[in-house]
């Protein structure tokens, strides 16, 4: 009896609170518009050309503030960079070495198996230099960030300069449609024609945003192409095996069932 009453009360409560929850969600959730990506879906694969352009954007622009600690220069073979190009790239980065004989810090040219050089010596130093908030590491950013690629693209193209008339203005902060509160300390990173792609693709803000988003998704999930490919073969093999196994099982059990 008791239970029934409670259940009824519960149903009533759920019924009553349903409109409340829709009302409560007044600040519309930031769901970025969906973009079409080559790497989407269970069969998606990365476009290596886009990844290479995206790495260029990351290397020239993002990496001045954001680290990507989990990757080594060698990992870039995954976006189709040649061994020599990786060697040259690593060599062009000065990496902190061990203290010298008099205890002074040293630096040395990078090697292919060095991890990506971090722009700041520590998170604390980064926070101190960047207005209190350390720029997040980008190794897995595209996985951690809700809506991953779609959000990254929307965010990178979502700066409004000047901000809309009704937006609050805070010195040192920038207006972006896709962050909570619409204000962020990170200045708009991309500009039209800021870099030149060697393959001749026009470097518009949208193009750069697309490319660097692809690169960030790759960095967060570098084996996606191989994973999808291997997965397809494994599934085909298992289906073949399943057909055989079912036939074998049926044949075996017929002796019991048919009697």
């Amino acid at each position: 009896m008791m239970k029934t009453t409670r259940l009824l009360a519960l149903a009533a409560a759920a019924f009553l609170s349903a409109p409340l929850t829709t009302l409560a969600a007044v600040p519309e959730p930031l769901v970025p518009p969906h973009q079409k990506w080559d790497f989407d879906g269970p069969f998606g694969q990365f476009d290596q050309k886009a990844l290479q352009r995206g790495f260029m954007v990351y290397d020239r622009i993002c990496s001045t503030c954001h680290g990507m600690k989990a990757l080594t220069y060698n990992d870039l073979s995954g976006i189709g960079m040649s061994e020599q190009a990786i060697l040259d790239l690593a060599h062009s980065k000065m990496i902190a070495g061990p203290p010298d004989v008099s205890g002074q810090p040293t630096s040395r040219p990078g090697r292919p198996d060095d991890h990506f050089r971090s722009p700041f010596p520590s998170d604390e130093a980064a926070a101190a230099m960047m207005g209190g908030v350390a720029p997040p590491d980008q190794s897995r950013l595209a996985v951690i960030q809700p809506h991953g690629a779609d959000w990254l693209y929307a965010f990178l193209t979502g700066y409004k300069m000047p901000p809309p008339a009704d937006a609050p203005v805070v010195p040192g902060k920038f207006y972006n449609d896709w962050v909570d509160g619409h204000l962020i300390g990170m200045p708009p990173p991309l500009m039209n024609g800021m870099i030149q792609y060697p393959d001749g693709t026009p470097a518009t803000v949208e193009q750069q945003a697309r490319d660097v988003t692809s690169f960030l998704v790759w960095a967060a999930d570098p084996h996606r192409t191989a994973r999808h490919r291997t997965g397809l073969w494994v599934v085909l093999y298992l289906i073949g095996l399943l057909v055989l196994a079912i036939a074998w099982k049926k044949k075996t059990w017929k002796r019991v069932k048919s009697q």
Binding site: R227, V234, V235, L242
Partner: peptide, 11 residues
């Protein structure tokens, strides 16, 4: 194994 594979490789 098919369910396992689908989750592991695709989702």
């Amino acid at each position: 194994a098919l369910i396992f594979t689908a989750l592991m490789f695709f989702w």
